[in-house]
Each structure stands twice: as C-alpha cells, then as structure tokens.
C-alpha cells in the first residue's frame, strides 16, 4: 500500500494528464453520438424505419471492442480519431434507443393539442416533445457514459489517449512491482471518473426536469 502511494506521488502529473484525456475522449464520443443520435431519433421515432436503425445501432454494440478499435485503424489511422469514432459507435444504441423511447412515451393527447393550437412540427418537437423526453434521454446518456468510461481504456491499444495507457504500460512491464501500481492507477482513475459522471448526470437530470414532471 505504501509502495503504491509512494509510486503515485512520483507520477501524479502523468496520472492527472491521463485522467483528463480520458474524460475528454469519453465526452467527445458521447457528444458525437448525441449529435447524430438525437436528430436521427427525432426523424425516425414515429416511422417504421426506427426498428432498422435500432438494429444497426445494436450491431455496433456486439463487436468486441478490441476488434472495433483495430478495424478503424485502416480508414482513420492511429491515435485519437479511431478512438473517438469507436466510442461514438458504442454510445449510439443507448443514446438513440432512450431518445426514441422517451419521444414515444409522450401522451399523444399532449402532442395533438399542441398541433391543434397551431405549433409547427419543429415547435412541437423543441418546445414540447424534447423537454418531456429529456429525463429518459439523460438516463440514456448516463448509461452510455458509464459504458464508454470502461471501453475507452482500449483506446491505448491504437495509440489513443487516456487511462488505458497506464494499464497498457502495466501489462508490458509485467513481473515488476510497477506493473500492479500502474494498472491499479488506471483502474482507480476510471472508477473515480465513473462516480463523478454519475453525480453529474444526476444533477443534470434534476436541473432539466420541470417541477411539473416529477412524480411524487
């Protein structure tokens, strides 16, 4: 234990740097998934094509992460690019599915009365449907973020940034005492991030949910 703490005080800068990179990487993947997933959900949630879209998003999730990162090297090279794209693909299903479910769960009478009062399709979506679906959408983001924090460690295998590099270094120096320390740093860093992200999303959910929608 003292050995681990001593070691950590020696490389704390590298640890913080890796943690920051890891956070940014996950946020990039998540952000991209939201940018593509939300409009896609808004376009397809009423249409039959949503089943096909969800099926494709589901397939991404079944590809083993090592393989997906590896496959992306061919078109995107090494480093951050394939890492972000891989994470986006993994986040796609929870983001898209929750958005579709959230939009479909809205009381049809609310949408009908909004249309009946003369709100345009876009106004109904932005002022009524998205705010009402927001709690479900945020839950999707929360699930996706937890998942990405773990998967992002694989990015190190394609020269990507993040805490995975500490774990990878640990693996490559197996047999030395540092091996365990490095791996432990990577793992603990991810756990701490997971807790922080969860708190963040809980706060976000509370902030964006109207008083009128909290079920007591």
């Amino acid at each position: 234990m003292t050995g681990f703490l001593d070691y950590t005080s020696g490389n704390v800068d590298a640890l913080l740097q890796a943690t920051l990179e890891h956070t940014v990487l996950v946020l990039q993947g998540l952000g991209l998934a939201v940018l593509i997933g939300l409009p896609l959900a808004a376009l397809t949630y009423r249409a039959r094509s949503r089943t096909a879209v969800l099926a494709v998003a589901g397939v991404f999730l079944t590809i083993p992460s090592y393989a997906l990162f590896g496959l992306l090297i061919t078109p995107l090279g090494l480093g951050t690019a394939p890492s972000v794209v891989a994470l986006t693909l993994y986040a796609f299903l929870p983001v898209l599915r929750n958005a579709i479910v959230g939009l479909r769960e809205i009381d049809p009478a609310v949408v009908e009365s909004a249309r009946g009062m003369g709100l345009s399709r876009l106004q109904v979506l932005l002022r009524v449907e998205l705010p009402l679906a927001l709690p479900v959408i945020i839950t999707g983001l929360r699930v996706a973020a937890q998942m990405l924090l773990g998967i992002a460690a694989i990015a190190a295998a394609v020269n990507g940034p993040g805490l995975g590099n500490l774990i990878l270094q640990g693996l490559s120096s197996a047999g030395t005492p540092f091996a365990v320390y490095l791996t432990l740093q990577g793992v603990l860093g991810i756990i701490v991030l997971a807790i922080l992200f969860d708190l963040l999303f809980a706060a976000l959910n509370r902030l964006t949910t109207s008083r009128g929608m909290i079920h007591v």
């Binding site: 009381d107 009365s113 009946g116 009062m117 003369g118 929608m213």
Partner: peptide, 28 residues
C-alpha cells in the same frame, strides 16, 4: 398552423403540457 392559431381547441384528455405551469399553458 396559421389556421389553427385562430381556432380554439380543447380535448377530453386536456392535453395540457405537463412541464409548463398553468399560466404558461394558457399563454401558448
């Protein structure tokens, strides 16, 4: 949409916006 803004519309299930206050609903 313009036609409907000039016609009041009330339905059985009310269709009130749950995330808006009474005043905001009426002000739509």
């Amino acid at each position: 949409d313009r036609l409907r803004r000039g016609i009041g519309y009330a339905i059985q299930q009310t269709g009130l916006f749950p995330h808006r206050t009474v005043a905001e609903n009426i002000a739509t």
